[in-house]
Write a protein that binds this DNA or RNA. Structure first.
Length: 251
DNA sequence: CGGTTTTGACCGGCGC
DNA sequence: GCGCCGGTCAAAACCG
């Protein structure tokens, strides 16, 4: 994982912003600090991830914490007998839950939009919706429809500011986007170089098209060591790396 | 008719 | 041990 050194703004320079348009919808991207302050939120710049964030804006624990990987896997392997369910079905479920334990890169970002499910160039199938504690808005669970792709994403509205959508991605796409050429244009937007700011990388695919405002990637988790890194330099490749491995990309 | 969404149930982890 | 909670499953409904 070699990230090329780029002349990116230092952490303190968090006021830069970019604007571009796609399909007639204009999107402005700004740093977290810039926007949050601008929106009247007082998050501050995280020296560590999440510093100064109001509770209502805290990301789901599965984003802000290390994945409980092997724990779930180990637990599901033992007790299989349970009244009411078909053994085969249960075994199947167990197997699937084991898979879920594998660690995946994750990151979350926030978008100011009235639309919950932002178009990002990939096709998603909703597999669940859940009311979560401390939020009047349900959280939706999506999976990439590509057969061999196990990328998931969760979408929920901020309870503090209902106009803000928190989107969290997990995993990497093993395929290219399935969007029309016009959408391709939009989904390629993140290749515009963005300063790293307090984030280690930028969203692989920005929500696009819909009149919404990406107010900044909020948090990206890879590994504990990734969090410790102070000033990584995202590159054009890095921008897509999280979702589409470089080998999969055609250019 | 195939793909997607909805929704209640199930499951495991965690805190008390 | 129990209850709460988040995440997932899967059947049924829905839609193009």
């Amino acid at each position: 994982m070699e990230e090329q050194e780029e002349s990116l703004p230092p952490l303190s320079d968090a006021s830069s912003s970019w604007k571009f348009s796609a399909d007639g919808a204009s999107i402005s991207i700004a740093s977290l600090h810039d926007v949050c302050v601008g929106e009247g939120l007082d998050w501050g710049l995280p020296g560590g991830i999440g510093d100064g964030l109001p509770p209502a804006f805290d990301l789901p624990s599965w984003v802000t914490e290390e994945p409980r990987s092997s724990v779930a896997a180990a637990a599901s392997s033992s007790s299989d007998e349970r009244p009411g369910g078909k053994p085969a079905e249960k075994a199947n479920r167990s197997a699937k839950r084991v898979q879920k334990g594998t660690r995946q890169p994750r990151f979350a970002f926030m978008t100011k939009s009235e639309i919950d499910h932002l178009e990002d160039g990939y096709r998603w199938r909703k597999y669940g919706q859940k009311v979560v504690k401390n939020s009047p808005f349900p959280r939706s669970y999506y999976r990439c429809t590509h057969s061999k792709c196990n990328v998931k994403k969760r979408v929920e509205r901020s309870s503090l500011d209902p106009s803000i959508v928190i989107t969290t991605y997990e995993g990497q796409h093993c395929h290219h986007t399935t969007v029309s050429p016009s959408q391709q244009l939009a989904s390629s937007a993140p290749q515009i170089r963005l300063p790293a700011m307090q984030f280690h990388r930028n969203p692989p695919v920005l929500p696009v098209i819909h009149p919404g405002r990406v107010i900044g990637p909020r948090y990206e988790e890879r590994t504990a060591s990734a969090v410790e890194r102070t000033s990584p330099a995202p590159t054009d490749e890095g921008l897509l790396d999280d979702v589409v491995p470089s080998g999969m990309r055609r250019r």
